[in-house]
Amino acid sequence: MSAAKRVQQWATFARTWHVFDCKWQDPYESANIIKKYLMGMHKPIYHPMNDCGDVVVCINSREIALRGDDWRKRAYFHHTGYPGGASWTLAWELHNKDPTMIIKKAVYRSMKGNLQRRHTMERLFIYPEEKVPEDIMQNVTNQIRQIRQVPTRLDHIPEEVVKNYPKVMEYPEDYILK
């Protein structure tokens, strides 16, 4: 066995730690990506009975982006079990209370509901800020690519770039600049 093959085999059987930056990412789209790494579906040896899942560390979960009017339209349901115990929490209310909950629920929902799911969820770490405890960060060896590009704000672009950027629209001759 060559050295490269040996490393490949070692990497297949090892439990790697991945980091995922949730900044401006849709939690429901990124849950499908995170799920694959958590369950080990990206490995050639994957089998549902095979404990080959990896660990994923999600950072910046406070900065997630929902599409359109999802923040005020999407509701999360909970029932205490008592009569009249049903409650509906809007996505922005839930995010106010716990900024890690939306991404956690999205990943939980994206997986099939079996007994393994609770154990797979134990391998998911979510942090609302960029700050991660040192003992967790020292294990991380890989970064999962973001799905959506993080947009740049116009006031963060230097003024020279904005001024010299190629222009598409030309003002008519009798236009008064406002």
Binding site: W24, I64, R67, G68, A91
Partner: peptide
Amino acid sequence: WNYKKFNTYFDETT
């Protein structure tokens, strides 16, 4: 205010 303070992205196909 409220839901407006969180990041939102839009779909151009809509």
